[in-house]
Design a protein around this nucleic acid. Structure first.
Lengths: 345, 345
DNA sequence: ATTGGCACTCACCGTGGATGAGTGCCAACA
DNA sequence: TGTTGGCACTCATCCACGGTGAGTGCCAAT
């Protein structure tokens, strides 16, 4: 079994390796860390750590490198998440100040986070499946074209164009708006989708009015669908190129995941947070998502009841304590901004 | 001076180099292309091409590689743009079929183009500076919050949240809507911005109504600004990782440009198109944008009078004829979709 | 449990020779 | 004048080789 000092050795190895990018040997450890024992003793500890597969040697006689499992133990038991420096805190608030609507806040958030960590920053839109539909508006354009606007009480707005089967005048449009509103306003997004689908299976579209309602509902359904599959905002993609050396293979899978979004959404969604709302998914733990060489660090945040995540993606060899601290701090800012200060939305 | 055959040699060098990624020597040329002369003769031609700086040798005794200037001559005088194959054409139409609004069409377009070329595809939104504001709508939410929607006749819709200084009732909102509409509807985006700024410098905001108008106009101005600085839609970013070997340095500047957008917008805007609306900007010609190792190929397209560009970005060592053909074909589809078939928007 | 000692492994580095692709030049030729 | 074969030369690439040093594993002594 690994001793207490053994764990400290693991900690030292992780820290030094993240620092220097080079396999760390027993001698280097006794030099850089005051263990008060000789290199031979450290070697014995390292042999045990290797038995437990927490560290590994790239080649027979070289220093050791943390395994994914080693990083996991480090993150779970050894990492101290130190609070951000005042300078970093003011940096965050400077990024976020003066933002109005949700979109804006989220964009600024990822910018702040990528600035802070030098990694790819990611934020989930608050889940809208449980949000309530608070408004539906129709704006008549020329001819049969109508803009359909859907608003939820979490502050998300969506707009999309519908082409009606017939030209309608103002009173007909008003009737349309009233009917669609009574059908959906006050419902959650999830219920809304159900209502629309139910309605779609009802008898044939005979009258002008019925045809118009059907056309509008089709568009509304698309919009609600978009709400359900919460989206991502990202920044700092270019950082991947800078950190390229940390990826054995290519950064292709990461860029692909960034473009796909769906993969990242699922990954972020499935991560299990600890008591502080913090979560990390390390290296091969992401194998199912094609991201075996990447780590994702995330934190929950609250937005008017809806819960979502903000985090970052980078190489397995990343500075977990500092990144966890940054993510946590940003998540707290976000929660404060989106929940407490209602008027700010 | 470079002879006619000399130019054909240049063509062969470009083609083979793009093909094999390796410097091409005189012997390889006589083997792969039926010039009917010996390698020594080709060597003489190559010496001339080198004098003209159209090709260069990576090291003293190795095959030659086209210079940026060489690619330029190739594109301008030697490249034959062959029409796409039927299979490629059907691929495009399959990508584009069933799309509704502008956003959708553009997203599908870049997907088609990236699929076709394996490069990063880029499309500019049609320029909205000259577009007319056709609608302004206010949607009252709870309390003082109002959604401000601006629509242009080119089909672009923007919505944004405004927080008014006071709570207003329905009639006041209606008055607000009427006032803002008379001020702006029918104007071009450019004129609209001017109107708003002019109005902003007028006397103090005394009444509730005046304060509200000012608040709404501030938001409208932001939206109009967004219209003016036409945006981009992109796809295929991950392809950069696949083609990484073609970039001597790193792909960092490219990823950065993709994230910035502004750089790419300026670049695409400044390119000079030929009679067919096609344009290419090669390697060092992009130095001012920090993209000396990339080439951009683009084509104009029309959308209800507004003109914009669709194109792609990739390594200097790219297949120009095929990429030019793809861009041209996609641009034609786009023009047809956005201009002719009005009802489709 | 810790330590110093020691043999051993192996990546890394610089050297050197062989290989071969490709050039530049020249004299001969049509 | 343009074309050609011949030939010497250059230089990247490959591989084999030995030396160096960081680092390990093991063991006997403390």
């Amino acid at each position: 079994m690994v001793s207490e000092r053994g764990l400290q050795v693991l900690r030292a190895i992780v820290q030094d390796y993240v620092d220097t990018r080079e396999p760390v040997g027993s001698k280097a450890i006794v030099e850089r860390h005051a263990f008060g024992v000789s290199a031979a003793t450290i070697r014995n500890d390292m042999a045990l750590l290797e038995d437990e597969e927490l560290i590994a040697a790239p080649h027979t006689s070289s220093g050791r490198v943390p395994t994914d499992k080693g990083y996991r133990v480090f993150v779970d038991h050894l990492a101290e998440i130190r609070p951000l420096s005042p300078a970093q805190r003011t940096a965050i608030s400077q990024f976020l100040e003066g933002s109005n609507d949700l979109d804006d806040v989220l964009v600024r958030t990822v910018r702040a986070l990528t600035q802070l960590t030098g990694q790819v920053a990611i934020v989930q839109y608050p889940s809208f499946a449980k949000a309530n539909i608070s408004h539906i508006e129709l704006v008549a354009l020329d001819g049969p074209r109508v803009i359909v606007i859907v608003v939820t009480d979490t502050g998300r707005v969506s707009q999309r164009l519908a082409v009606l089967p017939d030209d309608l005048d103002e009173t007909e449009i008003a009737r349309l708006r009233a009917e669609v509103s009574t059908l959906l306003v006050g419902k959650t997004v999830r219920e809304g989708v159900a209502r629309v689908e139910e309605r779609a299976t009802s008898p044939a579209e005979t009258t002008r009015h019925e045809r118009a309602v059907a056309a509008v509902l089709r568009v509304v359904e698309e919009e609600l669908d978009e709400f359900r599959q919460d989206r991502l905002v990202m920044a700092g993609t270019a950082n991947l190129a800078r950190r390229e050396a940390d990826f054995r293979g290519s950064i292709y899978p990461l860029l692909e995941a960034i473009e796909e979004q769906v993969t990242l959404l699922r990954l972020m969604g499935e991560m299990v947070a600890d008591d502080n709302g913090l979560a990390a998914s390390i290296g091969r733990e992401n194998e199912a998502f094609g991201l075996s060489e990447a780590s994702v660090v995330a934190s929950d945040y609250d937005a008017t009841g809806a819960r979502a995540r903000v985090g970052l993606m980078g190489p397995t060899r990343m500075d977990y304590p500092s990144n966890l601290a940054s993510v946590r701090a940003v998540a707290r800012y976000l929660t404060r901004l989106l929940s407490d200060d209602e008027s700010n939305r």
